[in-house]
């Protein structure tokens, strides 16, 4: 369980997180919605310790991470995987080396074992036999899949997805949604997804949370969330509903 207690973070005079409280349950897909520039990525970076809060506590199960020394943080991070917005593949390495990177760093496996694991991971994300390609040769969607393969390499308990569908076409968005669901099922992970995509959220979320003005204004299962009376959520959902009128059926199907 991930628990953020009274977390505050400011950049200069701008308060990005303002007495934020959030609980994320194990074994579920939690989608955090919010408008661009609301500090969703900042929130995610706090969870994994890339940023430290000005005040407040962040608990990963029964461990408080804000005061951890680098070595302790390193151990905590091994329980995490993260898929970055632009995948953040190391562009000086081949795809194979990218996926193998955490394995080489943190396991004592021999090269043959690593090769086997890498091709297995790439098969999981639907990209077989591209180990020798360079990241620059891949499309955006493929890069994200490789990024996910890399994030999964160390069998993490928690995987964070930072805007996994931004910049992808609707078909690819749908495919990524399937991939997240599949990954959750196969690897038995707790997933935290940052997004502003209602369609994706509706497709994958077990829990939804709304970040607005540095606070979580609502956190609920999808049915309750989409019918919330909070004005920001109403506006957010309605705008996207107009653009995608067939949403209601899907929502109904999903939550059967």
């Amino acid at each position: 369980m991930i628990r953020l207690v009274d977390v505050e973070k400011s950049f200069g005079t701008q308060k990005v997180l303002n007495h934020l409280n959030l609980e994320i349950s194990n074994g579920k897909i939690t989608v955090i919605l919010g408008r661009s520039g609301e500090g969703k990525s900042v929130l995610l970076k706090h969870i994994i310790g890339l940023m430290r809060p000005d005040s407040g506590e962040i608990w990963i199960d029964d461990q408080e991470i804000t005061g951890l020394k680098p070595r302790g943080l390193k151990e905590v991070r091994k329980r995490f995987g993260m898929l970055f917005q632009e995948a953040a593949l190391f562009d000086s390495m081949t795809v194979g080396d990218n996926v193998a990177f955490p394995l080489r760093e943190h396991t004592r496996k021999d090269e043959a074992g690593i090769d086997k694991l890498v091709s297995g991971l790439l098969r999981e994300v639907g990209l077989e036999g591209i180990e020798e390609k360079m990241p620059s040769q891949l499309s955006g969607g493929m890069r994200k899949r490789v990024g996910l393969a890399r994030a999964l390499a160390l069998n993490p308990e928690i995987v964070l997805f930072d805007e996994p569908t931004t910049g992808l076409d609707p078909v690819m968005t749908d495919a990524i949604g399937d991939l997240i669901l599949e990954t959750k099922r196969k690897f038995d992970i707790t997933a935290v997804v940052i997004s502003h995509d209602i369609a994706l959220s509706a497709k994958i979320a077990d829990e939804l949370a709304m970040l607005h003005e540095g606070k979580i204004v609502e956190k609920a299962p999808p049915g309750a969330f989409f019918n919330s009376s909070v004005p920001v959520i109403k506006k957010f959902v309605n705008v996207q509903k107009f653009s995608l009128p067939s949403r209601d059926d899907e929502l109904a199907n999903h939550h059967d």
Partner: peptide, 21 residues
């Protein structure tokens, strides 16, 4: 240029997340 690019494309964050300093 190299490290700067890694910074803006979050590759440095990726290193941190992969528990490499």
């Amino acid at each position: 240029a190299e490290i700067g690019t890694m910074r803006v494309t979050e590759q440095i964050d990726a290193l941190s997340v992969l528990a490499v300093n």
